[in-house]
Amino acid sequence: MSLWKFFLKIFTISMMTFGGGYTIVPLIREEFVHKENLIRDDEMLELIALSQTAPGPIAVSTALLTGYKLKGRRGAIVGIIAAILPPLIIISILYYFYTWFAANFWVRAALRGMSGAISAIMIVAVYDLAKASLKEHKVISALILIAAFLTSMFTSINTGLIILALALIGIVAFRYVPEEKKP
């Protein structure tokens, strides 16, 4: 894939990323895991884990790391530019009539339907990613998944700290777990 094509893909993805947070994940997966076959789902999970070790918007980190993985340092720079341009352009334009736009009945109506669509898209992405993450060491991995889910859902512990704890748990636990044959 050329740098220009990569730029266009991230630019389009960034323009479609409503809701912030992890909502960029299914879009990156669709383009780079499914259509182009350049990244596997387990690698995708590693990129997201790495993106959580730095502050700042997840979408920007994920775009940067996807670029880094596919195209090296130049890809990382292109990824970050392509990720920040759409919000920069859109908000600069809407700045002049934002109160009208944000309160507009039809904009709100369209958004209601979109939020339902995004929920559904996220549900399917979570199912796929969870399945990919449970390929090896099923029982331990499932316990880790559930523990991370509950911690994030019911405590206000910082995500960066959860990531750090997960890494430490892995380093300690898997040192003593015998290796599995890869499927």
Binding site: G21, Y22, V25, D42, L45, E46, I48, A49, Q52, S119, M122, I123, A125, V126, L129, A130, A132, S133, L134, E136, H137, S141, A142, I144, L145, I146, A147, A148, F149, L150, S152, M153, T159, I162, I163, L166, A167, L168, I169, G170, I171, A173, F174, R175
Partner: peptide
């Protein structure tokens, strides 16, 4: 590698919570 073996399901759990 060991760290990522735990991070992969862990991150799936975090995304599930956000979902």
């Amino acid at each position: 590698d060991h760290a990522f073996m735990s991070l992969r399901p862990g991150v799936a759990g975090l995304i599930a919570a956000s979902t």
